[in-house]
Simulated scan of single mutants.
Amino acid sequence: MTKTCRECNEDTDEPVPVALEHVASGAGRVVYLCPLCRYALGLVPLDQHPRDSYGFPLYEAHAL
């Protein structure tokens, strides 16, 4: 499944879901990054979020 990275706007065959985009008027969207941007930004993949995170972006401990 090819998705466009939210950070670099390049298409990737290995999209990593990192957050849920919340909107007040309806359903939100999943935010996808390419593996390089996900690592560079230090974001935790969505499937590794704690159950109570509500999908907001989480940063890994090593991120600056």
Rank of each mutant, 00 (worst) to 15 (best):
M1I: 09
T2S: 09
T2L: 14
T2P: 04
K3A: 13
K3M: 11
T4H: 07
T4D: 03
R6Q: 04
R6Y: 08
E7M: 03
N9P: 01
E10S: 04
E10P: 03
E10K: 07
T12V: 08
D13Q: 09
D13A: 10
D13E: 11
E14K: 12
P15F: 01
V16R: 01
V16C: 06
P17A: 03
V18G: 00
V18D: 00
A19C: 05
H22C: 13
V23R: 15
A24M: 15
A24N: 15
A24W: 15
S25V: 15
G26P: 14
G26S: 13
G26E: 11
A27Y: 08
R29M: 04
V31T: 05
V31H: 01
V31R: 01
V31Q: 01
Y32R: 03
L33F: 03
L33D: 00
C34I: 01
C34Q: 01
L36R: 08
Y39S: 09
Y39T: 07
Y39P: 06
Y39M: 08
V44I: 15
V44Q: 02
V44D: 02
P45Y: 02
L46M: 08
L46A: 03
D47L: 12
D47R: 11
D47T: 15
Q48F: 13
Q48I: 14
Q48L: 14
Q48V: 14
H49L: 09
H49C: 09
P50G: 04
R51Y: 13
D52R: 07
S53M: 09
S53T: 07
S53H: 01
Y54E: 06
F56H: 09
P57D: 06
Y59M: 12
Y59N: 08
A63N: 10
A63H: 06
A63Q: 12
